[in-house]
């Protein structure tokens, strides 16, 4: 397990390096949210999902698709050329995932729609797990709560939802804007789900929480994360929801990642 975790750590640094490089070629990338989701998506794709389950993954927080592209390139589903043309007029990969592209199972981008589609996936084959990653901001969408209800009512035990709880949206902290959605895990439990909270940058905790879930219920993992993690000047700064780093900022961030890689 420990070796697995240290490999995952290195992978996540590499993914972030790749994302930073992409940010220098385009103006539209949501670095903050991709950095908060990195360990979550890495754990799902590289540790938890079987290969035949990959078609059952939905990134409901579609604005972080760049991270999904980087991982799919790592898994040889997408090519380096695809990544190079990210968000370019001659490229196929845009800022939000498109179902027409390899490895992408749903066109998302408008928040609050992924969980319902995941429920449809789960209903079509109750024996196959469905993974869906949501932002905490999506808990402000009524449609998300419709899906939370429906999933329990339809007894869909094969849903594994992970909420990237970075507690920061475009304008402010989610916990200040909508304190009523906290504690998130209790909300899910009261809706008949199983739910746990974990450190969303700790691969071991993510994996363990999901493997040890109550398999008789749908499961929601509330992954506590930091937007912009682990870059010092990006962390918890709302401006990095959508901003691309300048040249200077880019080299500072790259150095910080390199130092982490040497650890």
């Amino acid at each position: 397990m420990n070796k697995l975790i240290s490999i995952a750590k290195r992978r996540c640094i590499n993914y972030r390096v790749k994302l930073l490089e992409m940010s220098q070629r385009v103006s539209a990338i949501h670095l903050g949210g991709t950095f908060s989701s990195t360990e979550i998506l890495d754990a799902i794709y590289n540790i938890l999902m079987k290969k035949n389950e990959r078609e059952n993954f939905i990134l409901s927080k579609g604005h972080c698709s760049a991270l999904q592209y980087v991982i799919l390139k790592d898994l040889k589903v997408l090519s380096e050329n695809d990544l190079r043309k990210y968000s370019k007029s001659n490229g196929k990969l845009g800022v939000h995932p498109e179902v027409k592209n390899e490895g992408l199972n749903a066109s998302t981008g408008s928040l609050g729609q992924g969980l319902s589609m995941a429920a449809g996936f789960a209903l079509s084959n109750r024996k196959k797990n469905v993974y869906v990653v949501l932002s905490d901001g999506e808990l402000q969408e009524g449609s998300t709560w419709e899906a939370i209800m429906a999933i329990r009512n339809l007894n869909l035990k094969n849903i594994i939802a992970i909420i990237d709880n970075n507690d920061l949206q475009s304008l402010e902290r989610s916990s200040i804007l909508t304190p009523s959605i906290y504690p998130i895990d209790r909300k899910f439990i009261n809706f008949g789900w199983d739910s746990k909270i974990c450190d969303g940058h700790n691969t071991k905790e993510i994996v363990k929480s999901i493997l040890n879930r109550d398999k008789k219920k749908p499961f929601c993992l509330v992954a506590k994360t930091i937007k912009g993690y682990p870059i010092s000047f990006m962390q918890n700064n709302p401006i990095w929801h959508y901003r691309s780093p300048s040249k200077d900022e880019f080299s500072i961030a790259m150095n910080e990642l390199k130092n982490l890689g040497n650890l």
């Binding site: 969980l115 319902s116 589609m117 429920a119 449809g120 209903l123 899906a147 429906a150």
Partner: peptide, 12 residues
């Protein structure tokens, strides 16, 4: 809203 989303998932 979930009626449509779930139907989409099934159709996909």
């Amino acid at each position: 809203q979930s009626m449509i989303g779930i139907a989409a998932g099934l159709a996909m």
